[in-house]
Write a protein that binds this DNA or RNA. Structure first.
Lengths: 229, 229
DNA sequence: CGTCTGACTAGAACACTGTCATAGTGTGGC
DNA sequence: GCCACACTATGACAGTGTTCTAGTCAGACG
């Protein structure tokens, strides 16, 4: 650690700056999980006393916000593929899912602190861009975006949950194995096994996407699945 | 407060049991939110010292589990309405949503401690029962249940989030208002307004339900929304 | 009646957490 | 040489979950 002081301009003392705090915090979270992000722990990682971190960064909340903001810029660009509008929307949706799984720790941190919207905003911009390219604007685009994001979020809380932190008898499969509900044995058996989340994500989000954007490439289209109202 | 001890007047032996701890804890959480559930706070509520709570209840984790288990039994029975299988599945899904909104505090507590599956299990049983009545068994029923639950969960994290705890500039609407993405003004405007979650929940979950269970009440009805694959 | 056992309770403490007030240090500019 | 400012350390406060120790009580047994 201990980057040598730059002493450029007003860089007086053997100097860390705000960016160093954020970078070290990100590394710490990625290496040991969100729970390891403690002000004292971060200070120790930088070989510095606790108030130094506060001097640079203000508070834990500000630090987390900065981490998320910084990470948000990192995951900006992933190429969107597909020829039909629905395929391209689906591709953008998959980016949200993939980048959350690629950065589990930081995504969990954002979730705990209620900054998910901040973290995923660039990916959401790409998503809403594709939605507009698919012909949706205004409230229709907003509704589609939110429905898709909510669905992704639902799968993410399942995928990001640390199952090992939950006692075995409190987990879903065990509950179904012990359940005496009037349910077919084959169903119980299927419920007692861990789910295939990626596959389920794909088909469910696809369904929601298709519900909002008609998936034909040329404009000679009629509504094939009327919305309920 | 302070249920009079079995032997009154002495003041040494308070005469509480495990059930009293759980009941008081539930009342506390419902009145002041999950964050108020502190071992010391609960002890104070019972007019007792902290270790007494531990003697009865083991640990905070055990206490929470007991709370969830107790609450789980409470919300067991809500009548399922509807004539078509899809309507009945939808009704069961709405019960999960409604009961979570009716008990925001405890649902949040369950979410934070990873015991959501435990809390909602009876409602999930009703849901899977209706799925089987709609003709799904085994892996098909399990997939449908999980897809529906994930979707509900996604909307719940939006509906249960305490927006007031998040600084205004970190919230979704503000981000869109300040965004310079290549997006139509009408869309930006729609995104800057708070969403109508109940309506969005209804239409999205309905879509997922329809994707899994064919919604024909009698066989003389053609599929009106073919699934994409 | 006395004594003993087991159910229960209180006080104080440990190791943490985020946060801050105080009291310094070193370094560049004058 | 000296000053002001940027930065850092020490130590503390209030809060958390948890546990050790030392009891006090109610009732069973002799």
């Amino acid at each position: 650690m201990s980057k040598t002081a730059t002493t450029e301009g007003t860089g007086r003392r053997a100097g860390f700056d705000r960016a160093d705090m954020v970078a070290t915090a990100i590394a710490l979270v990625e290496k040991e999980g969100p729970a390891a992000l403690t002000m004292r722990r971060l200070a120790a990682e930088l070989d510095v006393a606790t108030p130094t971190v506060y001097w640079h960064v203000g508070s834990r909340d500000e630090l987390v916000t900065e981490i998320i903001r910084h990470q948000s810029e990192r995951l900006a660009t992933r190429p969107i593929v597909g020829t039909t509008p629905a395929d391209r929307v689906m591709s953008a949706a998959r980016h949200v899912w993939d980048s959350a799984l690629d950065n589990r720790a930081i995504t969990s941190l954002a979730h705990q602190t209620g900054t998910t919207a901040l973290l995923e905003h660039p990916l959401e911009e790409a998503l809403v861009y594709e939605l507009e390219a698919a012909g949706l604007t205004g409230a229709a685009a907003a509704d589609a975006l939110r429905a898709i994001l909510a669905t992704i979020g639902g799968f993410l809380i399942l995928a990001l949950r640390d199952e090992s932190a939950i006692p075995e008898d409190r987990r879903g499969p065990a509950l179904w194995a012990a359940s005496d509900a009037p349910v077919a044995p084959a169903t119980i058996h299927a419920l007692a096994a861990p789910p295939d989340l990626p596959h389920l994500f794909e088909s469910t989000v696809r369904t929601v996407v298709d519900h909002h954007v008609s998936n034909r490439a040329d404009p000679a289209k009629e509504p094939q699945c009327p919305t309920s109202r």
